[in-house]
Design a protein around this nucleic acid. Structure first.
Lengths: 193, 193
DNA sequence: CTTATACTTGACCACACAGTCAATAACTGA
DNA sequence: TCAGTTATTGACTGTGTGGTCAAGTATAAG
């Protein structure tokens, strides 16, 4: 009953997400978005109300995509310690270009602080779901005796997830991947039984 | 031989640093700076060439001040493990208002990425000097047997410094101080012999 | 007192920004 | 075919930005 959309909204969203990821929310202008998507401002507005909504949608896309990759990687590993290693390896990007952008969630968390409720909710969800995966693997390791039981699974999970956050920071500041992975391997080594 | 400056440049720099710390570099406008310092734009320019130079000076001030506080706190502690605890406690701000701002160095590191050389140099210097203090304490602990020797002092220091960076991130995203300290205490507990 | 020098002040500039408007185009159901 | 609806387009708006200019002012050396 109306004129059909000429552009692929999912594709455009993904492209916008990439731009936000590279430049951050505030540093991204509408011109950046229209240039890379080849979609005019008003058309983007038609689908996503404004820059903030577009950003929120980008966050969700990023989160769901990353969590699903993480889940698949974990599923491929049998031993809990290998699962933890896989989580760490997946958290760090292999590609040099991607690495310098760091992690969109971490970047956003620092760009917005705790000011924006909606954005904070998305970030927390990413954190918590990652933590849950880590804790699950740790419990498995504790059950089979490869991971220490001197401390509770939740404490150990928080330790590792905190280390990963730190690693993602190092990643953005340009440290070489092997160096960062080394730190994470230490973090894992420290919790093995 | 010329008209004397009417404002205190050191005070103005400190005030600017506070603004940058709260809002970040890009989000801080000259209006913010002139409002809080009560110094007109052109006068600030006379002392600090432009916004970026002013920011660089702010970074250095922040760094030196924080490192000197850290050094004093360490000097008060005798046992290496207590020294590490002191470093962690000092890294996190006690005051609620300060806590939500996070750490200027970490914020800057994520705001600029690795793009700006000069800024990166200041950041790296802060990191390295903190790491050195941590490693020194760890070596002391290893010598007296309170800290594990399963891993080298440098690896352990990187582990702890990475954990502190993660903690500073959590700090900015609004997590309660006790929760963050808990994570850091775990990080210390894991390296004790 | 004169003059050189640096500080102060407020007006000013060109630009980039997010978001809006109004005119036009494409499609569909009746 | 035509009426209703939505998409597209480019021009437009108002605001805020970092940075500059020029005119005026306080100081100290000579």
């Amino acid at each position: 009953m109306s004129r059909p959309r000429e552009f692929d909204a999912d594709l455009a969203l993904r492209q916008c997400m990439e731009v936000f990821w590279t430049k951050g929310f505030h540093a991204t202008s509408y011109e950046d978005l229209t240039r890379t998507t080849q979609v005019k401002k008003q058309s983007l507005y038609g689908v996503f109300k404004n820059k903030r909504e577009l950003f929120l949608k980008s966050l969700v896309l990023y989160r769901e995509e990353n969590l699903s990759i993480l889940e698949k990687r974990i599923a491929n590993e049998t031993s809990p310690v290998r699962q933890l290693e896989a989580i760490c390896e997946t958290a760090l990007y292999a590609d040099d270009e991607a690495r310098i952008r760091g992690c969109l969630i971490i970047n956003t968390s620092l760009e917005f602080g705790s000011a924006d409720e909606d954005i904070n909710r998305e970030i927390m969800q990413m954190m918590q779901r990652t933590e849950a995966m880590i804790e699950h693997a740790i419990r498995g390791g504790q059950a089979e005796g490869t991971i220490t039981s001197r401390l509770g699974s939740r404490e150990l999970a928080l330790h590792l997830s905190n280390a990963i956050n730190g690693a993602k920071m190092m990643e953005k500041s340009g440290a070489p991947r092997e160096e960062i992975l080394g730190v994470l391997r230490t973090s894992i080594a420290l919790i093995q039984a």
